[in-house]
Structure formats: structure tokens, C-alpha cells
Design a protein around this nucleic acid. Structure first.
Lengths: 338, 338
DNA sequence: TTGTAAGCGTTATCAC
DNA sequence: GTGATAACGCTTACAA
């Protein structure tokens, strides 16, 4: 039923190795036999078994994106889906396959290190920092196994990330430009690196503008609607309410919108809102949200390229690993036009 | 460097075949040797090469989800992302890997039939009807290659789908219950199967309620905001405007909200809105949208189960392939409480 | 330029 | 119970 290299060899009256060389377009085979063998290959509709090839070549031509699906917040992030597309767009044309692996099932023996790496099931890995713990990175380094981290990691490791500090700068700067002067920041989790980066940009921008950085204007919490609502309520009802808020996510921002609506605070007149992340809902809230788009597809592209580089498939790769975010100004923060 | 079955055999002083049997927990091996060999395996940190195993067993323990990333509308649908999660959740524990393949690059020789199927790279395939054309299904049937379609296909093929007709019924029924009596339907593409199913439910429900089905109340178009806006404008400014609208998507619905706002039509008092699909934005529009949630994660689970069944890995599978949608009533259609 | 033969790391079929 | 040995389908020196 299935046709193998042997069948082709026989049909063409040549050795298996010759067929193999023809398949790989070796220069040591005469054009004559090449075309002859190729004809037969077409005729018999032969496709080499990638498993056998993999065994012989000691590689699988596959890379994995690791995801922790147990973390809903992470899995549900459409963010990852875009990364998948970005990675695929660079590795696909290079004849690599993409497998998506959930690290959740990975108890002891089922650990992805075994299931995918030692296994030789994949040639390289892409994952974010919550999966790629320092210990894992150390292990992968020791094994000299190629991997790319989404999010900054320690030196020997290669990573890509969105420039979150710049993001904090851009959002804060935008609000300042719009004439807001008392800007709060909400929705970050205390010591989370993501928050720290973003708040750094926020802080630096305020300082540079000669404005004070007040700790009572920075409210930590989850990046969820309720937390955004609570934070906004607290801020807006304080003695000196801010006149603008930078939010960690669209959901936080929606909570702020809700609070403002209830307190009859006019947006953008009395309160400006600008938020990280461009979710599909950003344009559809009332008013639409000024948001900062991080091109996660491009993030996947960068990660894919870096990985392909490591795998020796030469691709022109930019050395910079930080992607610039793009501000999308919408009504929630535009009062200069008034 | 890398440790193979041979190394273990030598270290344990047994034959390779014995080690293999131990790995597969064959009953013909004494507990004694089993534990001895296992100890060595642990010690030497041995993991069998899945490529070699694949070659020997003639299977890859991998299934693919095919996506056409060139169709933005399709790729961007977070819908697919949930399916991925659903599929993974059933095949993962069964030691299958998941690969995501883009059929876009598949010109001639690069066609996925070669790249994945004839290739033996994957043991089974899951894809939606836009990828699984009748010709492809025929070919796969001929090859007796296992595949599951997301969306109904012809007889020999196995498929899963959301019950879109029931969806049409539920949404229309809900609006009727809320006291609306003149219900329009917008956003479907003329002959698209998805639209036909949904409109069938809508039509049947109206008929059953003794209401007329008026063709001027059914407006086709893309499921995008602008189209929804245009359709709503047209309907609401007509001689006999409807008092409720069923939308094909959240985006259509947002267009309707926009139009209603401009025309000062009160929602839900003067106009009820209910829509297919529960996007993250549904709860955040003004007012929040009554929407119909299709559990696409569960769709992936069903597809995964059916495929595992075909691959002989017995899993308890429900025979029904239609998933029931769940109505999430929100303010945009609730006037009975008033 | 083409053919021979030895791997690649498992599994599976028989003997023992 | 355990061990040779032949597949599995392809690649790759090394010969010819």
C-alpha cells in the first residue's frame, strides 16, 4: 500500500541511496537520472516518511510552543493565539512543524523535558517566563537545547518581549500631552515583572515632566474589571482625585469606565483613561478606550526567527529583542480637540 | 552524551528487547528484573526516543489541527484557540501531541496531504469545513486516514458542530418571551451554511409562534460592525421598524447598538438585541449584550474524543455530535423585568 | 556518478 | 522469562 524509498529504487532500477540523493537534490547525481527518478516519484506519488528521516537525521523538524493551560488567565489570553500565528508564519515556510504543548499534565515523568526534549520530539522550544523558570532554563542550557523565552530571562538565554517600559512612557506621555497632570496607575500585581517595567516608564515620565510620583496614586490589584472599579472608586472619591488613569488592561479600564459613569465623572473631560493592551473590545466601550497595542503576532515572528537561527536555518534576524508598542488614541483620553 | 536503550541494556546486563519490554510494562517480564532495569533507567535518566518508537510502531502519536491562517477572519477567531485547548485536554493525557498546521503555505508539493498525511507525520486530523473540502474528504476517505470535521460534512465523514439551528431558536424564542413580536435577523452571508442553519431556527420559531417571516426583516451582510450598523439603520428607519434584532455576531450587534444610539432608540425598551457568540466584549457594551455562548472548548473536546476513538485509543464517546448553545441574557433584551 | 552497507533507536517475532 | 535478530524507512560514509 504505502510506497517507500525502496519501491522507488526498484522501479527506477537504482539504489535507495540514489533516490535519497535525488530527493535532497544532491549535486553528485546526473540530471539524467534525477529527472528519471523524479518522474517515477511523481508517478508513484511517493512522499518520504518524515519519521524515518527524522531518525536518520536525528531531528524532528518541529518546534513546540509551551503553554500552561491550567492558568486560565494565561490560556485565555488571545495574545498567545497571535504568537502562534507569528511563529508559524516564519517556521512554516522553513518546513518546520509547530506543536502546542500543555505543560499542565506534566507531573513527574510526564514533564515536558522528557516528553519533548529528551524525547527528541522537538528541536526547539518557545515559551513565556511563567513556564521557563530559572531552574528550567538552567537545565535547558546544560542540555544545550535551543529555546526562546517570551519575556526577559537571564543572560545565557535568548528572549523577546514587548517594551513595557516604553509602553508606560507612551501612555503617560500621551495623557500629559492631552493636558492631564495628575495621573494614577492601576491594576498591576505588586512584584510582577510586567508591572514593574510598566510602572518604571510611568514613573520616569512623570519625573521628567517635573511632576511628583505619589504612591497613593498607584493602586495594585488584578487586571480585572472589579479591581479596576474598586481602584477607580477609591481614587475618584479621594480628597484629591486624579484627572487621568493609566490601566494595566482593558478590563481594569472597563471597571474605571463603570465607576466614572456611576460617579457622573465626565470622560474625557474630567478624567482621561489610557490602557495597556488592545483588546477587541477597546473600540466598543463607551467612550472607546485609548489603548496601547503590543503586536504579539510580531512577537511570535521574532521568537520564531531567533529560534530558527539557533537551529542553524539561517534567517536574517534583527538583534534587538524589544518590540515597540503602538498607541491607539481614542475618545477616552482625547480632550485637546475640545 | 545521549543515553539510548542500548546503554541501559548494557548497564543492566540484559538485552535491548528486555529493556523495551520493561518500558512497556510487558507482563512477561519478572518483577525482579523490572525493578532492576527501572532503577537503572531512573539513574541514567533515560527517555526513549519517540521518533525511533514512531518508526518502529508506524505511528507518530500526534494529531494536527489544520487552520487556514490566510483567512484572517478565520484565524483571528478566538474560537479556534478554544478548540485547540479542548482538543489538547483530551489528547494530552492520552500521550498524543498536538500540531497546528497552516494550510496556507501548501502549494502543490507542500500540500498538507503530503506534508502531514502521506508523510506519516500525524496520525489524525481535525479541521473545519472550509479546509476539509468535499474533494479532500474523499481523498482522506480513500486513504482511510482518520479525520474529524468541525462543521457538518457528508456521510462517511465524522463531524462535530454547534447546534446553530437550535441557537436560532433559542435567541428568537428568548426575544418572543420578552414580549418582542417583530423580530429581524441580520449579518449572515447569503448562502453560507452557518447562516442557513441559524436562519432555519429563527424561521421555525417565528412560524411556530404564528408570526410571519418577512424577507425584508432578514438582512444579509458580513458579520462586521459597519454592516450591522447599516442594516440597523435601514431597519429602524423603515416604515415598520422591527422591535427586536437577532445578530450573527457581537460585531454586528455593536453596529446595531451604535445605530440605535444615534437614532435615539431605547434599548431594550423600544428595541431588543440578542446575538450569536459570546465575545469577551459582550458584557461591556452599553447596554451589555444578550448573547448565545457556543462552548467551543467543548467542541474541541468532542472532536478530540471522536478522533481518539478512530485511532483506537478507547475513550467513552457520546454519539451525538451537536453541542447545545447556552443563552446568556443581559440587559440588551430584558424588558420583562420592567 | 552510482551502489553498498552500516547506522539511527525502537519494537516485535521467535527461539531458547 | 529472556535474548537474538529482523524489521521500520531513510541518510551517509565509503567503495566501486
Amino acid at each position: 500500500m504505502k510506497v517507500t524509498i525502496k519501491d522507488i529504487a526498484q522501479a527506477a532500477g537504482v539504489a535507495k541511496s540514489t533516490v535519497s540523493k535525488v530527493m535532497n537534490d544532491s549535486p553528485k547525481i546526473s540530471e539524467e537520472t534525477k529527472t528519471r527518478v523524479r518522474d517515477i516519484i511523481k508517478q508513484m506519488n511517493y512522499t518520504p516518511s518524515s519519521i524515518a528521516t527524522g531518525l536518520a537525521r536525528q531531528s524532528s523538524n518541529t518546534v513546540a510552543i509551551l503553554i500552561d493551560m491550567s492558568k486560565e488567565s494565561e490560556f485565555l489570553n488571545q495574545f498567545f493565539y497571535n504568537i502562534i500565528g507569528g511563529v508559524e508564519s516564519v517556521i512554516g515556510p522553513l518546513k518546520y512543524e509547530l506543536t502546542i504543548a500543555n505543560i499542565q499534565h506534566d507531573q513527574a515523568e510526564g514533564h515536558f523535558l522528557h516528553r519533548l526534549v529528551l524525547n527528541k520530539r522537538v528541536d526547539g522550544i518557545i515559551a513565556n517566563t511563567s513556564v521557563l523558570t530559572p531552574e528550567l532554563c538552567a537545565e535547558l542550557n546544560r542540555l544545550e537545547f535551543p529555546y526562546i523565552s517570551i519575556g526577559e530571562i537571564n543572560p545565557p538565554g535568548t528572549w523577546v518581549d514587548c517594551d513595557n517600559e516604553l509602553g508606560g512612557t507612551v501612555l503617560t506621555g500621551h495623557l500629559l500631552e492631552q493636558g492631564y497632570s495628575s495621573i494614577a496607575f492601576i491594576g498591576g500585581e505588586q512584584n510582577e515583572p510586567l508591572f514593574l517595567r510598566r510602572i518604571a516608564g510611568y514613573t520616569a515620565t512623570l519625573r521628567q515632566a517635573g511632576l511628583p510620583v505619589r504612591s497613593d496614586r498607584i493602586i495594585n490589584g488584578r487586571a480585572a474589571e472589579e479591581d479596576g472599579y474598586d481602584a477607580a472608586m477609591q481614587l475618584l472619591q479621594s480628597a484629591e482625585p486624579p484627572d487621568a488613569i493609566v490601566c494595566m488592561s482593558n478590563f481594569s479600564a472597563f471597571g474605571v469606565l463603570q465607576a466614572a459613569r456611576e460617579l457622573k465623572v465626565q470622560i474625557p473631560a474630567q478624567l482621561g483613561i489610557a490602557t495597556f493592551d488592545e483588546y477587541p473590545l477597546s473600540p466598543y466601550t463607551t467612550p472607546p478606550l485609548t489603548s496601547l497595542n503590543m503586536d504579539t503576532f510580531q512577537l511570535g515572528v521574532s521568537a520564531g526567527r531567533l529560534l530558527m537561527d539557533k537551529l542553524g536555518t539561517t534567517v536574517t534576524t534583527e538583534s534587538g529583542q524589544l518590540l515597540e508598542p503602538v498607541l491607539i488614541p481614542r475618545l477616552s483620553s482625547l480632550r485637546s480637540s475640545k
